[in-house]
Design a protein around this nucleic acid. Sequence first.
DNA 1: GTGTCTGCAAATCTTTTGCAACAAT
DNA 2: ATTGTTGCAAAAGATTTGCAGACAC
Lengths: 153, 153
Amino acid sequence: MEERLARFKTLLKEKGMKTTTQRLAILQVLLEQPDKHFTAEEIYELVKLNWPDIGLATVYRNIQLLLELNLIDHLNLNDGYVRYEIGSTNMDDVRHHHHHLICMECGEVFMFEDDLLENLEQTIQDTLGFVVNNHEVKLYGRCKNCNERTEQV
Amino acid sequence: MEERLARFKTLLKEKGMKTTTQRLAILQVLLEQPDKHFTAEEIYELVKLNWPDIGLATVYRNIQLLLELNLIDHLNLNDGYVRYEIGSTNMDDVRHHHHHLICMECGEVFMFEDDLLENLEQTIQDTLGFVVNNHEVKLYGRCKNCNERTEQV
DNA sequence: GTGTCTGCAAATCTTTTGCAACAAT
DNA sequence: ATTGTTGCAAAAGATTTGCAGACAC
């Protein structure tokens, strides 16, 4: 957790950018709950708890920065908000493909890791000449809790 | 192609809704180019060619309707627009899972059919109790054309 | 004729941008 | 001291909504 903050500071220095309290606070919020998917507004509210003077525009600008530095990923659930979560790429550049299970009943989002698509990607490359760099998988359905609740009726 | 229009009219009648020229024109645009992914604005422009008085709000309202009737699907490329395409569910309720290959160089979107995820869905159901109804897969990379163009440099 | 639908304009809502003050190096 | 960054307010841009007139049935 701390290594990510340190890495962030290094990256900023390399790019001639400044290490501000707001920047660190925003990344910290994402780091603290790695399985959450926050909207910009939610990040704003959380940072405000410790830093009441932060502006929403600052949150947006720094989310953009964190995306460019590949420290966070974005997730679109098609509900009008873009959500953000701590990135999946480690320092050793091993990308853990994690995907999302979205419950259509309660809206909860679960994550799971899987590299099953690698065969498919090779097939696509061989047959279509399309080289796949990254993928995004979302599975929609009903989660365990919601299923159990229904069964009891 | 015509059967879809007929089906649309039937569905409208069943719901006590009216068959308007605008509604048919919008669906027609989507039907005519099933491998395109139009934004609302693009649909609006295309319908205007034959029906210059249509309003953008009407396009949005009827896209919503077509989504609810499951006649079209939406696609989000994270560029600020939602795109729409003719749905994948046939009259016989067989869902052809088609996914999207998005070229990060030229922006072109290709489609491919695949049901490889069915094993995975069963595994998820068995291990997590999450029942998957639908899925969305996007693969990002570089298309054949863009790869060939680079090789020649 | 009745009730839905349309086009227009205004409103909404998320995200971006301009700018003067401010803070990090 | 210099230059990037912030907070605020205004702008932008996609989508939605209210309403009076128009159209389908």
